[in-house]
């Protein structure tokens, strides 16, 4: 990672809340039994877009002690179809209930013609797609009454129609839609391996002032390609890239995202402590 990178500091992001974890049912009891060493928690929005019962009861109880951010997987911001108004209504109702620090989703689409893939499907990075995504983000932000964060996806294909890089697309999207970015460091690594670009080119091409949150996660290395699985510890290469991002962007809200093979909370807190250590070391110049 020898390439030089520069950073601007005209921050447009929200206040910096520190370090968090994804809230998963495995750890409800830990959070209810006593204070844990996290400054905030991230929920998967759809897991709580339910009529009632234990999920919302747990969320309300934990929300009383921790700030929450909402992270969705079904907004389908890149869909060629109109936004799902019913989904947006449920998302807004949850946001009204939770009063999150912020709301995020992914640069992707999830389905069309009433059929859903339940996956974060890739987009071509071209002008028509950019127009569509910017328009959709603006509509969502108007509806929710707040700026949202859009996360860079892991991807496995490149569309023939793409005429720009993902980071160029994200930078223009964020500027035109006046949204913020959730930078998944693992996804940068995964996509860099899958598409053969240098992750420093990616980081260096992003608008630093709009980066509100980092995700750190694990993946599965298949040799020829890498799959974003969130079922393993953060690997050394991603830790290195995280350090580079901290050095470039300064203090950014950071969390460990684990969705499968979920370990005891103590293990995730240890990973988060490592993130704190890396950030403290790499962000020091930003405090000077």
């Amino acid at each position: 990672m020898a390439r030089s990178m520069t950073c601007t500091n005209d921050r447009k992001a929200l206040a910096y809340p520190g370090f968090g974890l994804g809230l998963r049912p495995h750890h409800y009891r830990d959070f209810l039994e006593g204070p844990q060493a996290v400054e905030w928690l991230e929920i998967i929005s759809e897991n709580f877009m339910v009529p009632g019962g234990k999920p919302l009861a747990m969320l309300d109880a934990i929300r009383a002690d921790y700030p929450i951010v909402m992270h969705g997987v079904s907004l389908s911001i890149g869909s060629a179809e109109p936004l799902d108004v019913d989904y947006l209504g449920q998302l807004k109702a949850l946001a009204d209930r939770v009063e999150p620090l912020w709301v995020s989703d992914h640069l992707c689409w999830t389905g069309i013609n009433a059929h859903n893939s339940h996956d974060l499907l890739p987009l071509p990075y071209d002008a028509p797609t950019l127009d569509c995504v910017v328009d959709n983000i603006s509509r969502v932000q108007d509806y929710l009454g707040r700026r949202i964060l859009i996360e860079n996806p892991s991807s496995y294909v490149t569309f023939r129609a793409s005429d720009r890089s993902e980071w160029e697309f994200l930078a223009e999207m964020a500027e035109r839609a006046d949204c913020l970015l959730l930078l998944d460091i693992n996804n940068v690594y995964v996509s860099a391996r899958n598409h053969g670009f240098h992750p420093h080119d990616y980081l260096g091409g992003l608008p630093a002032a709009r980066i509100q949150q980092f995700h750190l996660a694990g993946h599965s290395d298949m040799g020829d390609y890498v799959i974003d699985t969130h079922d393993a510890d953060v690997c050394e290469a991603v830790w290195e890239l995280f350090a580079d991002a901290c050095g470039l962007f300064g203090p950014v809200a950071t969390m460990i995202e684990r969705d499968d093979d979920i370990p005891p909370l103590t293990a995730l807190l240890a990973e988060l402590d490592r993130a704190r250590g890396v950030a403290a070391r790499m962000c020091e110049p930003h405090y000077g």
């Binding site: 996956d119 499907l121 294909v157 390609y225």
Partner: peptide, 29 residues
């Protein structure tokens, strides 16, 4: 036809990742 083919992984194998993800997520749920 929409995606770039390559000698490293190949278009079909790349699309197969999404095919597998689709079935795996529905089987998982």
């Amino acid at each position: 036809l929409f995606i770039v083919d390559d000698n490293h992984v190949g278009a079909r194998k790349r699309l197969d990742i999404y095919r597998h993800n689709y079935r795996a997520s529905l089987t998982g749920v």
